[in-house]
Amino acid sequence: MRLGIVVLCLLLFFTHPLCTTGLWWAVGNTLTFDQNRICRKAKRLSGKQQDLCKKEPEIIEAALLGSKEHGLGECRHQMKLRKWNCTTKSLGRVLLQDTRETAFANAITSAGVTFQITSACSAGSLLQCGCDNSSNSIIQQTKNATWLWGGCGDNVHFGYIKSIEFIDTQEKRRSDIKSLITQHNNEAGRLAVKLHMRKECKCHGLSGTCTLKTCWKRMPNFRDVGNRLKELFNGAIKVTGANNGKTLLPINPTIKAPTVTDLVYSVESPNFCEPDRKVGSIGTAGRVCNSTSEGVEGCQIMCCNRGFTDEIMNRTYHCRCRFKWCCVVECDICTKNVTISRCNGYS
């Protein structure tokens, strides 16, 4: 799974053995954002990726930043309470499989690339694009309001296209089920951004009467993108390849075929309870759990019935804050005991 290896290499700064083969923008064993160094390897590439290296290296820089800052950061946030928590130590083997964890990592990283390139357009950081003004000057009217499309809308279409060129070009040359699943989940990640643009407006008129509004489209908050993909992760569909080599079909015939926005997988996940290098599990010994919850973050599930131990720790915090004229807020420093539960080790 090429994008999975991309995620791993960004985290490990290309020091993992998987990162030295097959990853077209790795430079030896070192992560660099120097586009000239990265694209020296472009001589053996063809098509869109070669064009990006030769003509648009700043797109690659934005894509790498989106993979690392948005994709991987959000992956860790969304999975922090699960047995697999998107940790660096587990990504390598996990992402070589077709599990639902792989599906989520591919989708959230693809979304991160789309988000960052689009953001760079709006910020004026890329010469190839700017604000989306395709709808400017179009007047829309509803029962209660009238608005004029204008302002600096986010050019998500550009970010979407460049994400495809950056991520999917190599996968599109193959037709095995791994590539089909990877492309499907990459697309689901991009659509989690593109299909959920929101409207922002500014009022015009005397004394703020808002008789006319100028509106533009903004991308959703990336936390909302992560939340949406996490829900799709929970409802991911197990699939197999159809005879035509182009379609994914659910294993369970009673389940509807996956839509373009669903996440899909073909291999059941390991339980991640104990260390197993073959599947990328580092186990859950020492993980923090919630002793009062019966959910996935609860100690019974997180600790895999091995039990847990409570630790009492002192925490400091600001308390008894008061405002002093003018203009300072003064606070005392207080301490309190906090109980933290951690999973026991292995017998």
Rank of each mutant, 00 (worst) to 15 (best):
L8C: 09
L10W: 03
L11S: 09
L23A: 07
L31V: 13
D34K: 09
Q35C: 08
L45S: 04
I60C: 06
L65H: 07
G66D: 01
H70F: 13
C86A: 13
K89C: 06
V94I: 15
V94D: 00
V94K: 00
L96H: 09
R100S: 05
E101S: 00
A103N: 02
T109K: 00
S135V: 06
I139G: 03
Q140M: 14
Q141H: 10
K143Q: 09
G150I: 03
H157W: 04
K162G: 02
I164H: 04
I167W: 01
K172H: 14
S175R: 10
S179H: 14
N185A: 05
G189P: 08
G189C: 12
A192Q: 03
V193Q: 03
H196F: 15
C201I: 11
K202V: 10
K202P: 00
C203M: 13
G208Y: 02
G208K: 07
T211N: 15
N221A: 09
V225I: 10
N227E: 15
L232D: 02
V239I: 01
A242H: 14
N244L: 09
I251K: 04
P253N: 09
A257Y: 08
T261V: 14
G283N: 07
G283W: 06
G286C: 02
N290K: 06
S291M: 13
G295D: 13
C304A: 08
R306D: 05
F308K: 02
F308E: 01
T309F: 11
M313R: 10
R315V: 15
R315C: 06
R320L: 10
C321N: 08
C321L: 06
F323I: 11
K324A: 13
S341K: 03
G345L: 04
